[in-house]
Computed example of a mutant assay.
Amino acid sequence: MSAENEIPVAYEQLEELEDDFEDVELEMLRYQHKLSKDLYARREKVIAQIPHFWPLVIEQSPPDIDEYIQPSDAGLLMNSLTGLSVERFELPDGDPRSIAIRWEFSENEHFENRVLEKKFYWRNAKDGWAGLVSEPVEIKWKPGKDLTNGMLDLVRQVYKDEDAGNKGETEAKKKLKAQMESTGLDGLSFFAWFGFRGPKITDEEHKEATKKEEERRKARKEGKKTDDDDQMEEDEDEDEYEWEIFPTADDLAVCIAEDLWPGAIKYFMAAQEQEAMSDLDFEDDSDEDMDGDEGKEDPPSKKRKA
């Protein structure tokens, strides 16, 4: 690059700006949570009086969510989902990006649980990585009704084995690998989402990494050169996603927390409008076919998007 085309702004200044933007976004999340908490409580009281509110919301869910719902998942969600809630459980003092998503169900043919809650913790790693981590959630499947075909139970066993210090090739890992290869992502049940784990980051590592990041930011603001600026390449871990049955579960969690949950009323109203339009079309068709069609069967009801 010639001297006349050299960038006059140091890259450290750009990184400092990125840090400041991130700080602002976090403050906005904290403030939004504070302002909307009572509104969500009021909304919960109102929608508790509306039958099938959450199934209708799921029915109109955006493509980023809908693409993961298999027909068998849709049947369960449409018939048995009774409640959904999102909580930024580490507030007021912790990170607002940590979220807990709680699903409530009525009695159904697939599992015994009435509540399934998955927590995602925002964590920093010593190699510079930052993101959401979780633990596999147990679903008590009824005999022959496991929508994940055993994958969720296997990923939980792998997680337990690793916690116990057994990181070699266990029987659970062999079975899980074979199951993942035979299933593929296209045939994956939505309920495999509960098996997401992410990198293993202890509380101690998170605290140390967070402190190190704060010191790095402080030094950068003071115009000091830090060793980390030359060494912030992430350590490549080939096994990071090897045992993930739902690798994009963290992205889906964010979509639920930042789109579906706050926009629930919008999606419910869209479902109502679609239902009204479908009924109107049905009435028009009935009027046109009134003469001479008494013996014909009624047309099928509209197909749900989910």
Rank of each mutant, 00 (worst) to 15 (best):
Y121K: 04
A253R: 04
E214S: 14
K145P: 07
G295L: 03
E171F: 01
R220L: 15
I256K: 04
I101Q: 10
K266G: 06
K34D: 10
E258S: 09
A306L: 08
T202E: 05
A3S: 11
V155W: 05
G75Y: 06
R216H: 11
D287K: 12
D285F: 03
S72Q: 15
E6V: 01
F268R: 11
V24K: 12
E288C: 03
F89A: 03
L26H: 06
N124I: 00
E22P: 08
V133R: 08
L84Q: 10
V158F: 03
V137F: 03
T202C: 06
Y241T: 07
E240C: 03
T210R: 13
L252Q: 05
W193I: 07
E15V: 02
W193H: 12
F105R: 11
S36D: 12
D73L: 03
E107F: 02
Q274G: 10
K212V: 00
K167M: 11
Q49H: 12
E294G: 04
F53T: 09
F21C: 13
Q70N: 07
L154R: 06
D153N: 11
K175A: 15
G75P: 05
K140D: 13
K221T: 01
Y121D: 05
V86W: 08
E244M: 03
D250R: 04
E16F: 02
R88L: 01
L260V: 07
P300L: 03
G184I: 00
A209P: 07
F120A: 06
Y241L: 13
E222W: 02
E12C: 09
D161T: 02
Q231F: 10
E236W: 07
D285P: 03
A209H: 04
L280V: 04
R114L: 07
D293N: 14
E112S: 14
T210E: 11
K145W: 00
H33D: 12
I265C: 11
V137P: 04
I256R: 03
V86Q: 08
P262F: 01
I69K: 02
